[in-house]
Design a protein around this nucleic acid. Structure first.
Lengths: 199, 199, 199, 199
DNA sequence: GATGAATGAGTTTTCATTCAT
DNA sequence: GATGAATGAAAACTCATTCAT
């Protein structure tokens, strides 16, 4: 029999990530994904039920990975709250900077599907957000973080700033230094923009 | 004197904003926009060249308005840099909180069209961003804002955090207090999350 | 505005009848129906939800018409049972001989959809069968028809024989005399094949 | 000695009969046939050229068998015309009641392929019909059957009534008594529906 | 200007058939 | 012979846009 050559499932997913990032989900054509994956269009449906399922798989993969790493992080006793937040930010910076196309897809499509196709959207995004909240909550308890800040607002603040920055970086195709973005992001998040030395 | 109401061009734009916010641009049907605008579908094309042009007009309207108000703000002598930043943030908070559907559209669609249909995208967005940068730049010069922060990164940081927050609010249909969001946002932006009293 | 020219809904139905009769429902292409109806393919969907709905409409139309005429027939007091049966047979002979393509479609497709898409199948077929049974039942009561015959079996017997004959005629494109078929059918149904004069 | 069971060619045919009866030929999937036959889908093509050939084989098998048995019947000298007709009817009743799925397939698909794929359709159906005509023709000659009946019409009449009845029985999954159907069928065919005792 | 019926290009998806192993 | 992964042609259907009235 004809045996699976290489790994078509992965090839297709990689191709889809590329095409979705390039054209946006709605304008992306299945035929283009097939072409990039060097696979017949019918083969897409051997591995994925339909176009949406491919996208959902992209999100599921990243958020599952991020969630799992964060879970381990949360349980570490050798790190204080500030260090845990730092590590968590490094984690997502690393993940998306290794997969800039996924960052672009997340920024452009995630909200739409989270809102309007919630039942098919990976539960690991919300679970990850929950862990982030936990880290911050602990930081507040031990008075490292300001207790007057609304934690629900904070999480949205962080997520928004982060995803905009990572996409800006991804779109610039590396022209902007990721490390500069990362350090500025961390600094801003912790100290804000005011000149600490006063005017 | 009040301009006569029932202007079709405006009706269509309002209807489109509603429909785009509800379904997302790509899934929005022209026939639905026509229905909501209480206009025949053919009439849409009397006022707008095509579907995309309607969306572009939505963006052009908000960013032009925001740009113009910001321009006036920038020129005021009675405000220092921190006050100008505050006012600018109030400006966009006010604008989008009066038009939550536009906030949703901005969050979901703007990036796509900014990137991939740049030639049709309103120049007033970039012009507005320029003004924002100017305000901050001045603040740095007078040492109100921290000079070590990269201004390009900062603008993306602010924009990302802001739009995520405003959409969160818009999607929640008013369940979250806008004032709480605004004050937290301003505080975070200025002072960050660390407890100022130390641990 | 562009006003309905002619009657596209009817044009499409007529075209579909032709195409379904020619190729069979499953092999019939929507594009072919559109071509025959001299209409764009998209227009088909202005009048019918999908391919199946067109076919269902064909069945609904014939059986509704036949049912209504039979209903009137059943109520007549001037006819005895044998005459009513005769008239009913004439009715269906006339209907299908005026629409030979529908006869072909009925013979080839009806059973499939009756069985497997029962919820979309016209209720007027069963209602018509009910009236047929009523006529025969009355004939048995007044001893015109043989009381030993199972009426459920009889109705299937008649229906099967009739539809096979009408299709044979329709397929022959008029080579066989319809009147000959009709008289032989009536005779056989009443007297059977045995030579009445005995051997 | 029993022929070895588990013959793939036969397994496939049996599976196809089941699947065709269940879903109808056009909706039947080759993959489903393979699954039911417990065979790989590629193996279907080792034994049959394509989907249509499988169906054609189904028809060929029944009609060949029926033809051969009828041929023997025709040549018997110990039976008069009426008895021959009776036996022939028993023959087809027996054949299809032992293979109700084939009865269903015949009723739903035969006409389509007889008409539109005549060149691939088994010649044994027509040959069988020829024998049937011969039996009746002889019955007319010896004045057992009514000479005024058109023999071509009669054969269609019988075939239609029979196949509708056998399918009705097959679909009812045995709820209706086959013997009752058979006796009513024979009676109706010979004597018709009129009450022999007059009104 | 206004209408909405009509258009037809464009895309996803299915599934019979092939063929490398 | 047997397998089942891979293929790609084919077709239904959608919907932005046009245009006759």
């Amino acid at each position: 029999m004809r045996v699976k050559e290489g790994n078509k499932e992965t090839d297709i997913l990689k191709a889809a990530i590329k095409v979705f990032a390039e054209s946006g989900y709605h304008k992306a054509k299945m035929s283009k994904i097939a072409e990039v994956a060097e696979v017949a269009s019918g083969s897409l449906y051997l591995y994925y039920k339909n176009k949406e399922e491919i996208l959902m798989k992209v999100f599921d993969n990243v958020w599952t990975e991020i969630y799992k790493s964060t879970e381990i992080l949360v349980q570490r006793n050798d790190l204080n709250s500030e260090e845990k937040l730092d590590s968590m930010l490094d984690l997502i910076f690393d993940t998306f900077s290794e997969n800039p196309d996924i960052a672009i897809i997340m920024a452009n499509e995630q909200k739409h599907f989270q809102l309007r196709e919630a039942e098919n959207f990976t539960p690991y995004f919300d679970k990850f957000i929950g862990l982030g909240q936990k880290i911050i909550g602990e930081g507040i308890k031990v008075k490292v973080f300001n207790k007057n800040i609304d934690i629900n607002i904070l999480k949205v603040f962080i997520l928004g700033a982060f995803s905009e920055l990572i996409v800006e970086w991804a779109m610039s195709k590396g022209e902007i230094s990721l490390n500069l973005i990362r350090s500025n992001f961390k600094y801003l998040l912790k100290h804000g923009i005011l000149n600490p030395e006063g005017k």
